[in-house]
Design a protein around this nucleic acid. Sequence first.
DNA 1: CGTCGCCTTGAATCGGATCAATATCAGTGG
DNA 2: CCACTGATATTGATCCGATTCAAGGCGACG
Lengths: 248, 248
Amino acid sequence: MLLKENPVSHHDCEACPIRHRAVCARCDSDELELLEEIKYYRSFEAGQHIIWSGDRMDFVGSVVSGIATLTQTMEDGRTQMVGLLLPSDFVGRPGRNGAAYDVVATTDLVMCCFRKKPFEQMMETTPHIAQRLLQMTLDELDAAREWMLVLGRKTAREKIASLLAIIARRNATLHMSNASGELSFDLPLTREAMADYLGLTLETVSRQVSALKKDGVIVLEGKRHVIIPDLERLLEEAGDDSDGGVLG
Amino acid sequence: MLLKENPVSHHDCEACPIRHRAVCARCDSDELELLEEIKYYRSFEAGQHIIWSGDRMDFVGSVVSGIATLTQTMEDGRTQMVGLLLPSDFVGRPGRNGAAYDVVATTDLVMCCFRKKPFEQMMETTPHIAQRLLQMTLDELDAAREWMLVLGRKTAREKIASLLAIIARRNATLHMSNASGELSFDLPLTREAMADYLGLTLETVSRQVSALKKDGVIVLEGKRHVIIPDLERLLEEAGDDSDGGVLG
DNA sequence: CGTCGCCTTGAATCGGATCAATATCAGTGG
DNA sequence: CCACTGATATTGATCCGATTCAAGGCGACG
């Protein structure tokens, strides 16, 4: 495996790529300075465990770059992904000592960590942090509930289409492109990870991806690059309302 | 249907049964007085819709007594329950105008409502409210994620056992009884509601309940009263770790 | 008593899981 | 350059658990 230098060049919060979306988004310069004192960066390689379920946590933090998964595993090995962590997403739970889930980097990843104790203190004294964290947690809760519908009531084909739609929409907003027209992206997940996300087996994932391709809903370049010729069509296949049900 | 008087006798927050568990739990007397000014009570009968998905919301609030469900429905009628609201649970989302889910009372129910605008203002000025709401939302997020494992990876029998275990455990803490030994409770849900919670059909729910009964995991008195002779046994059937994986 | 809502049970069917073989491809070393 | 390896992905055959469709039971209530 390649040795690499520390990829973290920006120790300055003001220049941070997730400055306006992470838990610190509402902080002013004074507050940022306080945060700088309790923060540090950690890098992980693709495949590395960031946190083991049950372990004691002495930090919380934000994903700066890269992608990680949150998973739960039963004793017999069945696993379910319960969250997908993207840049700016928050990791850890203030007020709790043990980790409830495994967190695994699926790509090389950089985290901005805050020492837990001082962070919890800052939450008491700095409403901007608690307010932003509340907002983010409410969004995550909505996402989790949307996912419950997918897991509980959708067919395998609809599940795949839903996942692709979510990734496509996220990429669209990330790159502020036009929401309609042709979209394309690289899948950040293996077939197995997709299966763990969707409550399926990897074979079923593979079959349904092939089926969607055969039916022209998606176009594949290689195994991982996906082109969506018609987002509306994909959303139909996902069983979603055309606008995705997003509310003001 | 019986006409009934307004069952709300306690307009005084200090005497409220959910005083120490609801969103107001951390408020001191001064803050409670401010809340009293923007609050009002509403009663619902079993079966009534409290909120329709997509409707404009002009209040948020807490369940004071009774039980309600949060559900999502697809155009073709498939529905998934995404939350079970018990006394002290919070309804509505500050910072959002439209309701994302249907909320339905499954028993007669009383809500303590706050006018949304002033409540949002109070959240800015009263950290105790935002802090408590954050705590509650994080708990709900954990519950939602635990439910994702149930929906995605458990068998029908395990799903039923999981639901019973959750209700049993909740009742145990509610009545501060000894966690072990014999437990019993009334199911607050119909077979159909259980199916919607578990991502099953009502027939499958019925069959698996019968199977658990035949195998002696549960004892039924009538259709709704459930006795758990051995909680450990039930947890095994649920596929759960014996301690339920709860972390400090 | 008869009706309605809720629940149970049976038989047939189907979607996804399981088991198994093969394909693709990047990396590695001869 | 090619053969070997291991991780990832595809595809086929079969099986099984849950759904679907259908019939009937139970209890509350008018």
